[in-house]
């Protein structure tokens, strides 16, 4: 019944408005079985809204939303037994201990793996006897993470799950997510932490103002951006200025400095080669540059209110 490339999450043309705010505007998103899918975008882009529609908390205005092939609005509870959700801001009941919350969420989901629960509590250095409000922000987050990671589920839906975790705990989290994927699990991970995305995600989708602006593997995305090139040549290079995809060209005698669209790098280096390369440094874009390009104002700015209040 299961086959490779089966879509666990399949969203197309999803629109959701709150009053006059259009939070999602014909959004598409596909998460296939067995992948860790990064879900990125600036504050207020609509990530949490998408996840809440996917979990049947919000009703879509239009578009198609499938979760495990089912309708998340009609079959919410049934589908929820196969997934675990961690919000970015976990609120606990003041009189319930962390351990009680873990058991509560786990059992309502259909059961916990006792051994994994024990291991997670230990690794996250969580004190399960403390009550709701006496937990710090990071520790509240850990309670929800333990409950999610100790559940026997097929899909993890994580909305900025590590906000407030210290770097050591972050790496514990990363380790467990990798383990989960190795066991055949699928993950939808919304995050602002690029190192986490780079380490975990097989594919990413970037959204802005409620629309997907990019999707693919990180290598694909890198491919779509520019590489900076500095070359020392035997003789002055010709034809570079005319080559499409070359930007900010600066030629000083035998030295050429420029940026080139990564898809054009082969042709550019070909021209350099004809001029005799003495030395060459080509710097691929960093992840930050990649995201700044998508988050920054190269794309028409969304209305200011949506930029102002996120969450």
């Amino acid at each position: 019944m299961t086959f490779v490339n089966e879509a666990i999450v399949d969203i197309s043309g999803l629109t959701k408005t709150f009053g006059t705010t259009r939070a999602l505007d014909r959004l598409d998103l596909t998460v296939t079985r067995g992948e860790v899918h990064g879900f990125l975008g600036p504050n207020g882009a609509g990530k949490s809204t998408t996840i809440r529609v996917l979990l049947g908390m919000l009703r879509k205005d239009s578009g198609e939303v499938r979760l495990f092939g089912g309708d998340p609005w009609r079959d919410a509870a049934h589908l929820h037994r196969r997934l675990a959700y961690v919000p970015g801001d976990v609120n606990l009941w003041p009189n319930l201990t962390g351990g009680q919350v873990i058991d509560l969420l786990g059992r309502l989901r259909g059961g916990l793996d006792e051994e994994r629960r024990h291991g997670l509590v230990e690794r996250f250095e969580l004190d399960p006897t403390k009550k709701g409000r006496s937990y710090s922000k990071g520790n509240r987050q850990k309670v929800a993470l333990v409950a999610a990671l100790a559940s026997d589920v097929d899909l993890l839906v994580l909305d900025e799950p590590t906000s407030g975790l210290d770097p050591i705990m972050e790496s514990v989290f990363t380790e467990y997510v990798e383990q989960f994927r190795a066991g055949g699990g699928t993950v939808l991970l919304s995050s602002h932490i690029l190192a986490e995305v780079e380490r975990l995600c097989d594919r990413v989708s970037i959204i802005r103002s409620g629309r997907r602006v990019e999707t693919g593997t990180l290598a694909d995305l890198r491919h779509l951006t520019r590489t900076s090139v500095v070359a020392e040549l035997a003789r002055p290079v010709t034809g570079l200025a005319e080559l499409p995809g070359v930007h900010d060209l600066d030629v000083q005698g035998e030295r050429a400095i420029f940026e080139v669209d990564t898809v054009r790098i082969d042709e550019a280096v070909g021209l350099l080669h004809r001029a005799g390369i003495r030395s060459l440094t080509a710097t691929p874009p960093t992840l930050e540059e990649l995201f700044l390009r998508h988050y920054g104002d190269e794309i028409p700015a969304a209305d200011p209110e949506r930029e102002a209040d996120g969450s």
Binding site: L55, H78, H80, R81, L108, R109, G110, A144
Partner: peptide, 10 residues
């Protein structure tokens, strides 16, 4: 939200 993201129906 976290409660209703489990097998518990509304």
């Amino acid at each position: 939200e976290v409660l209703l993201a489990t097998g518990l129906t509304r």
